[in-house]
Amino acid sequence: MEKDCQITCIANGDEASFRQFIISRYPPLYNYAYHILKRKELAEDVVINVFVSIWEMRRHLPDIENINAWLYRLTLNQSISMLRKESRWISVTKGITDMELDIADPGPESEYDQETIDRLNKAIGELPPRCRHVLYLAKIEKVPYKEIAQILGISVKTVSNHITYAMKRLVAILKIFLLFI
């Protein structure tokens, strides 16, 4: 309910609500853009542009069915066009074709050590790019399957297939290692 109120306020041009909106939505969108672009300043630029376009079309915000999925979708689209643009200026084209996702450091309370995380990262790196992308959204960003389907323009069934496949592969790759944890 509180969220609906925030959206209505933004739609009416309330800057304070929009500030709150940016503060709460920026971290996940930034991380998402960063995983695609691999460069901090580009990721920041993309997400700021997403917010700018939201502000410019704020009147239509209440009509959007699922704001969360839509925000991810905007970020994805802008990140991809940023990659296209960047490739014109910058000779380093590494990471453009695949969307390599890493898993960040474990929290300070973590019972797992760095080695565990490194192994997991390596295993995730062996997954197909699309599969990694879905895994990242579902498991790290905790986006519901239905929203992932909307973001990537695929069916919920496909999302669930990707996750099943990813988990199966990870179990297979980490099989021996899993015995010790």
């Binding site: 991380n31 474990p106 498991k139």
Partner: peptide, 17 residues
């Protein structure tokens, strides 16, 4: 176990919002 591992992973702190 894999789920648990993934759950433990957090994102790097976002820069100054």
């Amino acid at each position: 176990k894999i789920d648990g591992l993934l759950d433990m992973c957090i994102q790097p702190p976002a820069p100054d919002t």
